[in-house]
Simulated assay, not measured.
Amino acid sequence: MGLIEAELLTDSGSDTVVRLPPRRFPGVLIRATRCRSSVAEIVEACRLRRAYRTGGMSVCLPV
């Protein structure tokens, strides 16, 4: 493992766009805590969709 310099293309907090040499295209760095909460939201949305489609839920939830 070693150190390399990366080109920082954004100055946002949680989600950052960087380009690593010698790559031509940038990538996105996402903090693990943000990724974990996003996955939890997706899992919950899938669970609610499944419940709605199977008749276990009959109301729309606010977003």
Rank of each mutant, 00 (worst) to 15 (best):
I30E: 06
I30Q: 07
L3T: 11
G13K: 11
T54G: 07
P62S: 15
D11G: 15
L8C: 06
L8T: 05
E5N: 07
P22K: 06
G2L: 11
R23S: 04
T10Q: 09
R19S: 02
V63D: 05
L61H: 10
T33P: 04
I4S: 13
S58C: 14
L8M: 14
G56V: 00
P22C: 04
S38M: 08
P26T: 02
G55S: 11
T10A: 09
L48T: 15
R49G: 04
A51V: 05
V28Q: 13
T16C: 13
R36I: 03
V63I: 02
R31I: 02
R23C: 07
L8F: 12
G13Y: 09
P21A: 10
D11A: 12
E41R: 15
V17L: 15
V63M: 04
G2D: 12
C46K: 12
E44K: 05
M57S: 06
T33V: 08
G55D: 06
G27N: 01
R36G: 02
M1Y: 03
V59F: 09
L9I: 01
E44L: 14
R24G: 00
S37D: 06
G13W: 04
E41V: 03
L29T: 00
S14G: 02
D11P: 00
R24P: 01
C35L: 11
R49L: 09
L29P: 01
V43S: 09
C46S: 15
P26K: 00
R23H: 09
C60Y: 08
P62C: 13
L61R: 12
E41L: 12
R36L: 05
T33S: 13
E41Y: 04
P26I: 00
Y52P: 00
R24F: 03
V17T: 09
P22F: 01
V18G: 00
V28I: 15
S37Y: 02
R47M: 05
E41K: 13
R50W: 07
D15K: 13
L61S: 04
R49D: 11
R47S: 10
M1L: 10
P21Q: 08
E7H: 11
R19M: 03
P22R: 07
L61F: 08
R31A: 09
R49C: 08
C46H: 12
G2E: 15
P21C: 02
S12W: 06
G27C: 09
R34N: 08
G2Q: 14
D15I: 15
G55F: 08
A51E: 15
G27H: 02
M1N: 05
R49A: 08
E41Q: 14
L29F: 08
C60L: 10
E7T: 13
S38R: 09
T54R: 10
A40Y: 02
P26V: 00
L20D: 06
S37K: 11
V39A: 05
